[in-house]
């Protein structure tokens, strides 16, 4: 099939589309044609790779119909429920001043998520949104505007958190090391004084056990929070 015949057939098969859209599609294929001609391919080879104009038109029209149907469904859904909080629209709102297209693009976006398993993916996106607050300029403007309150408060919170973390691990380490040490000392003391030795050994074992138990609990908590993320 020659290129001109292909274009005519494709134009005809795209019947229900607006003329401007049909021209865009023809231009798309024309560009592909020119690129492939530069590589030395013949008309027949190029068009054979593209396939049947009827199949191409069907794909384009099908895609268009799906998006129109979905747009209508989602628009109806939005109209019925004012509390629609699809925050996934946010990334596209201020993009390069293209707010004019917002209606259609925010309506279309949920379609890429409609395959199922949406909830777990949305949770991830909500977490990303929390982190993205710290990336917004407004947050930092407000933060530094009230620096006499926010900075000392931040330092205090970070210090408390660090102190808690350090003291927690220090306590566990002290219990383990102290307990092990006391157990060893207790064994040696038994040779001099059995009662004292047994007491020291026993206390050492209790401390060592408590330390190991705390370490195990910390490990479990750590794995729990890691899984939750």
């Amino acid at each position: 099939m020659k290129k001109s015949k292909f274009e005519k057939k494709l134009f005809k098969k795209l019947g229900s589309l607006p003329k401007a859209e049909k021209i865009k599609i023809i231009e798309y294929y024309n560009e592909l044609y020119l690129d492939q001609k530069e590589l030395g391919k013949s008309d027949e080879e190029i068009i054979a790779e593209w396939g049947n104009p009827s199949d191409i038109a069907f794909k384009v029209l099908n895609e268009d119909a799906n998006e129109i149907e979905l747009s209508e469904k989602v628009l109806n859904g939005i109209a019925e429920s004012k509390s629609d909080k699809d925050e996934t629209e946010t990334p596209f709102k201020g993009d390069n001043g293209e707010k004019g297209r917002q209606n259609k693009k925010t309506v279309q976006k949920p379609s890429y998520r409609s395959n199922g398993g949406k909830t777990s993916m949305e949770n991830g996106k909500r977490e990303t949104k929390c982190i993205s607050i710290f990336k917004s300029k407004i947050f930092w403007i407000v933060y530094f505007a009230g620096f006499y309150v926010t900075i000392p408060l931040t330092i205090a919170l970070v210090s408390v958190a660090l102190a808690l973390a350090i003291s927690l691990f220090a306590t566990v380490a002290a219990l383990i090391v102290g307990g092990a040490g006391s157990s060893v000392v207790g064994i040696i003391t038994m040779f001099y004084s059995l009662n004292d030795g047994l007491l020291t050994f026993g206390a050492g074992l209790i401390a060592l056990g408590a330390g190991l138990l705390c370490l195990y609990i910390l490990g479990v908590l750590g794995r729990f929070f890691k899984k939750k993320k």
Binding site: G51, D55, I56, E63, E67, D95, Q108
Partner: peptide, 20 residues
């Protein structure tokens, strides 16, 4: 991916503001 598959993708991405 084929040429006919790519066009709707590019169109969709352009309309949704993902590409210019």
């Amino acid at each position: 991916i084929s040429e006919s598959t790519l066009y709707p993708i590019l169109k969709r991405l352009e309309v949704s503001g993902c590409l210019t």
